[in-house]
Simulated assay, not measured.
Amino acid sequence: MDVLDVLNLGEVSVYFSKMAMFPVFDLAYYIVSILYLKYEPGAVEVSRKSPVASWLCAMLYCFGSYILADIILGVCPIDYFQHNTHILLATAVWYLVFYCPLNLFYKCVAFLPIKLVLVALKEVVRARKIAAGVHHAHHAYHHGFFIMIITGYVKGSGVALISNFEQLLRGVWKPETNEILNMSFPTKASLYGAILFTLQEAHLLPVSKSTLICVFTLFMATSKVFMTATHSHGSPFALVESWVCHLLFGSALAASDDHHAPAPAAPAPAASPVKTKEELSEGTRKRKSKKAE
């Protein structure tokens, strides 16, 4: 505690947790989100053929988590669109990313040093959204721990969870890319973060919310910046998850031995037996006798 008091970490965490996200952090969030949209197959083509569809996809990338969380909590799903400033700011980013002359804006924000800064700022927003989602659900359902977890999880990774719907707007359908089946690092981290914030909200975690927001944000920003810089698609949770899954759910090899494993392929039909020399000679003799008749 003496060290914390000397460094004033408690005051720093409180200030950080109350720091306004608009406009700097939200702007970074919109830029990175729409930048990832442009990486998606067919996104550029859609922006040329149907700007309306492209704009809707961009809005889903920016506000999909709010829309999905509102649906879960029984609120009007377009409620967030009353914030005209946020919508106009996201629209301006969408236009610059897809339609800026000579692609200058895209080249600037995709420049790795700038992109790393923007990615770090986006993770600040993600952590704050998870905490806000859990807090919002706690007010509506005081003892609904699972509702708090789900709401925080959706607030942190709602864009990925509705990615299949967004793909339909782009004319793409890839059900195998379902985020529940193939969870990325931000989606997993959002789930784990929602659990931590729920425990804190229920006073089962002996740490203040401001400190938890600060620590979780630092972890998310550091991990995502490192993964972006190294172009890695791995996960810091991989080692722990592999051990836990092996302990609780069995290994992949064990899973293939149960009755849910796919049935073995049917054996190939046996080839007709090779005829002996005597059988071939007998067949030749019979054909000759028939011709003579």
Rank of each mutant, 00 (worst) to 15 (best):
P101L: 06
L73V: 05
I78V: 13
H83D: 15
I114C: 12
V119E: 06
Y99H: 11
L104Y: 11
P101A: 05
F111N: 10
Q82Y: 12
I114V: 14
F111Q: 10
A110Q: 08
L102T: 08
Q82F: 11
V97K: 00
Y80C: 12
C108T: 14
L68E: 04
Y80A: 11
C108K: 12
L116E: 05
H86G: 07
Y99L: 00
P101M: 06
F81A: 15
L73H: 03
F111H: 14
L102G: 11
K107C: 05
N84F: 15
L68G: 03
L68Y: 06
N103D: 12
L116A: 08
F81R: 06
N84T: 15
N84W: 15
T91Q: 10
I67E: 09
T91W: 12
A69S: 13
D70A: 11
I114P: 01
L121T: 00
I78H: 08
V75A: 12
Y80H: 13
L104V: 12
I78R: 05
L116I: 04
Y99I: 00
S65L: 01
T85W: 13
C100T: 02
V117C: 11
L88E: 09
V97P: 00
F111V: 05
H86V: 01
H86K: 14
A69V: 04
H83G: 07
F105C: 03
V97T: 09
T85H: 13
I114D: 02
I72K: 09
L116C: 06
L73T: 11
